[in-house]
Structures are given as C-alpha cells and as structure tokens.
Nucleic acid binder design. Structure first.
Length: 293
DNA sequence: AAGGCGGTCAACCGCCTCTCA
DNA sequence: GTGAGAGGCGGTTGACCGCCT
C-alpha cells in the first residue's frame, strides 16, 4: 500500500513559477505565515502543490537568501564541510548564511566536484554505487581498514557534534573534539592521509572500504584511480592543481615527505573514545585551506 | 547562421524522519 | 506502541543558455 500523494497532480500547476505566483506566495506568507504547507496553496489561491510552494519559498523567495556567485570563502567552507559531512546539503547550507541546500548542491555538482576530483587525481565514474567497487576486495588490508574505520567513526561523531553545536548560539559554542577533528582534517596532516589513501587506491583496486573522505559518496559517483583510468571529458578540461594550489605542481604521485610520514604515524594511532582527542592539541593551529585559488 | 553539445539551476520526485493523536 | 500526516532532504530531471563547430 503506497502513500497517498501529497496533492492531486492533475489539479496543480507544475513547472516554472511566474512572477504573479511568486507575488501571491510572498504576500500570503508575509502576512499569514505558513501554518501548514499543504493547506497553503488553497488558502493563498495558488494552483500549486504545497511542497512546491515550500521549495519555492525556501530556495528562492525567502528574504534572507543571498543571490549571486559563491565567494572563495564560501567555496572553502563547502569543501571542508563536504569532506566532513558528505552529501548532507542541508547541514552544509546551515553553515552558510543565506545559502540554500539546493544552491550548495548545485554548486557542488556543477563546479566544486569536478575541481575536487581533478585535484585529487581521481576519476569520476557516474552511476555506480560505491559498493560495486568495494566488494571486490580480495586482499584485505586489516590495518588500513581498521584505521579508515576509525576515521569514519570519528567523522560521523564529529558530524553529530557539529550538528549539536550549530544549535547553540555562538556564545554557547564550546571548543569540541569535532573542532579539532575539523582542523586536523583540513590541515596537512589530513591531506597526507588523503593522499596516502589515494596512493593505496592507485596500487590496488581494494580500499574503498568505508571511504574515509566520503567524497562523492551517496551521489552515485565512484572514485577510481590508477593507471587504468581513462581521461574523461571532465579530466581533459581539468585545469589541474596549479589553478587552485597557488602554482604548486600537479602531483598524482602521492609521495609523502618525512613530516607527512610522522603525521601519518600520528594518524594511524588515532585513538577512539570521547575524551581521547587530546593528542590533537599539539597540532598546527592553522587550518590550511588547500583549495584556495 | 544553425545545430549540437555541455553547463547551470529551478523544480520535481520519492523516501525518510519527526510529530502528534 | 502505532499509524497517519506533514515537513525535510537528497537525487534526478528538464528547460534554458552560451559556446563551439
């Protein structure tokens, strides 16, 4: 037994909203609010589905919405938050005042995703669930798998804390483990980890395990790396890392220097547990944003 | 000039979660 | 505890636009 449709699809208008409809919706909401979205179209005299009204309002007509291109700061924030949260567009948008989840999602899909995969030396392969490439695991790597699981666990935990913190006012917000995790994740330490992870992937087809970075997860994108990769149109247009990393060389070699190795050692002994993040205290304080233009 | 092609973005769809009776 | 209703969310679609050949 399926759910009853939210509205009579025959009786409602669909497609682009006209300025007249926008005005009716804005006028009604500014004077009456929206007791329930489902009843709103009828009350306002709109031949629209309630969900359509809500979407139009929240994504376009709301007075606090910022229109216009994303600033570099917003881009960096999106990249950081996506690394932490994955495709949780609403959660990401909640940290970008005036931006909507739809806007962030579109911006990511049409802009940042390409650049992200480009800079990572990874390949985009649409429409295959990640599990397809995960399940062919023939040669387990217990250690790396365990550590990736730890990272994933920490990431999920940080996500939860981030959500909690976002509910607090700035004055109430306290420095939490998630802050340290965020900072670490976006520092060269996290980058080293990601790079090593990328190198492992290029060496063997396993290791997608629990996707430590969660990049592209849930969006029907499978990451693939290594010599077998073919250049997609996206990659052919890729302006590579020089564009984004201040002229540093576009490197797919994933070589680690000594400092990165020690950072890796630190990461691979990443402890679990709520109160055990103190080891991060000594990490460099600057949150290096490595996706700067 | 015109058709093809790719990118962007508003809107839709269907599932999930929350709330309340 | 349970089921229905409502809102929220993420993925997908399709129209539109600009560039290229």
């Amino acid at each position: 037994m399926g759910r009853a449709p939210c509205c009579d699809k025959e009786a409602v208008k669909r497609g682009a909203w006209t300025p007249e409809e926008d005005k009716v919706l804005v006028d009604y909401i500014t004077t009456h609010g929206h007791p329930t979205w489902r009843s709103l179209p009828k009350l306002a005299g709109l031949l629209r589905c309630g969900k359509s009204c809500r979407l139009r309002w929240t994504n376009y007509l709301r007075p606090d919405i910022i229109r216009g291109p994303f600033t570099p700061e917003e881009e960096n924030r999106i990249i950081q938050l996506h690394g932490m949260l994955g495709n949780k567009w609403a959660a990401i948008a909640s940290h970008l005042p005036g931006r909507t989840d739809n806007e962030v999602k579109n911006f990511w899909n049409s802009n940042l995703k390409k650049r992200f995969f480009c800079i990572s030396g990874l390949n985009l392969q649409a429409s295959k669930p990640p599990s397809a490439s995960i399940s062919i695991n023939t040669k387990p790597e217990p250690l790396s798998t365990r550590h990736m699981a730890q990272w994933e666990s920490a990431r999920v935990e940080a996500e939860a804390r981030l959500s909690m913190n976002s509910l607090l006012s700035p004055s109430q917000t306290v420095k939490t483990d998630s802050d340290y995790f965020l900072r670490l994740w976006n520092s060269e330490v996290g980058e080293s980890f990601r790079s090593l992870n990328g190198r492992r992937e290029s060496q063997s087809p396993i290791s997608q395990t629990s996707s430590s970075t969660k990049v592209g997860s849930g969006s029907g994108v499978t990451m693939q790396a290594g010599p077998s990769r073919t250049s997609s149109p996206i990659e052919q247009k890729c302006i590579c890392a020089n564009d984004m990393m201040g002229g540093s060389e576009c490197s797919n070699s994933y070589e680690l220097d000594d400092s990165s190795n020690s950072a890796m050692n630190l990461l691979l002994d990443f402890p679990s547990g709520d109160d055990d993040m103190g080891f991060l205290q000594g990490q460099p304080d600057d949150v290096s944003i490595f996706f700067r233009h």
